[in-house]
Design a protein around this nucleic acid. Sequence first.
RNA 1: GUGAGCGUAGCUCAGUUGGUUAGAGCACCAGGUUGUGGCCCUGGGGGUCGUGGGUUCAAAUCCCAUCGCUCACCCCA
Length: 418
Amino acid sequence: MIKAVTGTKDILPSDIPRWKYLENTVERIFNSFNYKEIRTPVFEETPLFARGIGEETDIVGKEMYTFSDKSDTSLTLKPEMTAAVVRAYNEHSLGAQQSLVKLFYISPMFRQERPQAGRFRQFHQFGAEAIGSNSPLLDAEMIQMAYEILKSLGLKNLTVKINSLGTPQSRENYKKLLKNYLEEKKDRLSEDSRKRFDKNILRIFDSKVESDQLIIKDAPKITDHLDEESKIDFEVVKEQLKKSNIPFEIDSSLVRGLDYYTKLTFEIDSGSVGAQTALVGGGRYDLLIENLGGKPTPATGFAAGIERILLACENEKSLTVPEPSIDVYLIRIDDGLESFVSELGGKLRKENISVDFDYLQRSVKAQMREANRMNAKYTLFIGGDEFKAGMMNLKNMSSGEEEKISLKDINSIILKLK
RNA sequence: GUGAGCGUAGCUCAGUUGGUUAGAGCACCAGGUUGUGGCCCUGGGGGUCGUGGGUUCAAAUCCCAUCGCUCACCCCA
């Protein structure tokens, strides 16, 4: 038997109500902040991600689904959305029509990693990008939107972490400081961290190795070495979060693994998932638009992992979505009425009433069981003596009450069922 | 890429020191008034015991390989 590819999952009919609920919540909240939806292709030319995310990142280095098409163009299934949105922004000059463009998306992403709890090879993210302003109010808005969505889904066990990476200039200065501090301790670092020392020294902060942690603990903090502008912006974000009653902590070791971030970065973690605690990650990326060939334009955004959020919801039992149901199940009492039942079903369906009936020649009892399983609000009995007398029985499934309705009086059924 | 655990019915699992036709609960199907559900009762269908090989008179059970799943590391949503 052929099975779904490793790291991919079917979203089955029984899963759909929870997904829909989440998607509706996401859309509602993004609409309230006036973000407009954007959809981009699932694949792009490979250099978009290589340049956008950074050649040295793990995503680009080892996790992308890259392949050549018949014209030998290297294509990649999108591993994240920001580069794709920026590509569309540049390509269609979206910034020419309005100076601040606020976009959101819900989309599958692809990364070839080993699957584990809250991590898949095809997974789904929703997120937002605000392109065209350097206002720290927008950074705060990103956190607010993400936080509000998670809260609306009933999640409780949340931690908002923020940090500032500063401008590229101040970050470079800080890197030098950090390098000086770590230079003499370098040989005590783990192998991975020694590699990071040369490739991307900030990433040493991500290490979970205890001996590394001890060394890093007393390292100079990036938030103590920010340029004036970043410092002021960081203060504004903190102030806004306080005003919005969003609890947060400053985590100066929060270094996101994508190269494009500048100034504010943030993450929202949940204690209700497995080891992959990050539900939401984001930050400002003031240089990306320019790097991808656009005019210099400041921007900020975030992405949230839908599977992880639903996992947290499940573990916290925070979501109660209504059981699916139908309005009426038509019950055929006598053989030979199949086409009449089908025709009547059609009429009701045209009135936007959800209708189903038996296609398997089953007994009345079996049809009733089916109606019960489908959570039918009503059943309509067609056949027998009443039918000969021009009547049908309409039964309310929760009260058990029945009433006779004339075959000619479809309208009164429609009224009842609506 | 590295490490650990696990693969028996659609699902959750049981299967004693290897020993007759591999079990349970749930789900599914049928019946319990010739036309009425949810509860209950009776009966039924459904499994190459992940796959391949080996040991043995005999393997779901022991050994090897392989595939898959799960979790963790790395990194990230």
